[in-house]
Amino acid sequence: MRLLTLILIFFSTNLMCLEPDEILDNQNLEKRAKQIGQQLRCLVCQNEDIQNSNADIAKDLRILVRKLLLQNKSDKEIIKFVHERYGDFVLFSPPLRLDTMGLWLLPAGFFLLMIFFFFRRQK
């Protein structure tokens, strides 16, 4: 298929994202659920968070997040819960570890190097 196959598969039914019956009555909890949902990647979709995805797994995870919130879990605990089961791929912001260091250190190093050259030229 030469078509934009992926768009086809993952967006064609996209209108079924967050359903009204998933929403919690408690507005504060719902707000937190939304924030957590935006941190988690829908695993079968292409680069969408679970909050705005219609995939089955995204819906299950949305329900899970809300269930854990009702059990008074903190945001961190909930993200950790999902992370333990699905691995790094599910997190949109990778955990700071030795192997993800480069992601922060390379840009920072680049910036400092440029600034260094700039101010050296001042002299």
Partner: peptide, 10 residues
């Protein structure tokens, strides 16, 4: 050999 995601929050 590790699959990670970098997305909007980053």
């Amino acid at each position: 050999d590790k699959k990670i995601s970098v997305g909007a929050p980053f």
